[in-house]
Design a protein around this nucleic acid. Sequence first.
DNA 1: AATACGAGCAACCGCTCTCTC
DNA 2: AGAGAGAGCGGTTGCTCGTAT
Length: 295
Amino acid sequence: MGRPPCCDKIEVKKGPWTPEEDIMLVSFVQQHGPGNWRSVPTHTGLRRCSKSCRLRWTNYLRPGIKRGSFTDQEEKMIIQLQALLGNKWAAIASYLPERTDNDIKNYWNTHLTKKLKKLEASSGSDSYSSDGQCLSSLNSTSRGQWERTLQTDINIAKQALQNALSLDKSSPIPDYTITDVKPNIKQEGKISTSTYASSAENIAKLLKQWTTSDSTNNSEQSKTSTSTQLSCNNNAMTEYSSSFESLESFEPSSQAATPEAGKFHGESKREVDDEVPLSVMLESWLFDENDDLLI
DNA sequence: AATACGAGCAACCGCTCTCTC
DNA sequence: AGAGAGAGCGGTTGCTCGTAT
């Protein structure tokens, strides 16, 4: 019973991806769209597990991923959402459409936990557990103070959200061609090696061809393609815009049209039986309450 | 200049839930 | 209905690079 294995586990390659493998994967997604990962190794000849392919795409090759240092605004949002949701990195990532859950998780583990520990040391009052959760919240004696702090933090988060929402919506949606692939390559000179740089150009060229052929074939494709067979360029556009919409409406559970939204959708699906959906709680908590404090 | 150490991050591992047969 | 693979997620590891000694 069940399905056949996705790939021959014995022949599976591990370790860092080569530029050639990236191109093969991008090429596959160009043709078939993201998803159906089990067919990737057989279609592309990649000696990688389907799981590895999915991870590589979502964390690195997917268009629209912003790399480099996190902004203060993003940082604040992560802190607030982590406090609210815990280590639900995929859920947190759904509020930061340009960041991957892996990136956020890494940033939290490497930067924010240290930062919070520093704050803890300097304030001497709040204590954080190993996962960064504020333990002082459990201390009833300091609860009043903690609540005030939390309220301040909420206001900061709200302000950050308002700033995000006030972004010019008419600004053009990024063009996921060369300029969007390059930022996906490790920045800040960490991998400044010419080997990858040149290969990244190859990927970029491939993507450029992809978008070019897309624009010419779109009408053709639209006749036959299903929603899952949308061209990846269109997927990227849809993904970005719907992700932005999700930020705008702050109701991630309703945004299931994209893989990233789907991630959160999966999360919310598990909570669908709950009496109060998380999105509603979030919405009311962040927007409905204390609106007078906002702006 | 050589070595040790720490930071950052990509990728893997293992688990749970969902889906397919 | 149930077995087993796929998909998704969080935790962890290990490699690479930068910096201090």
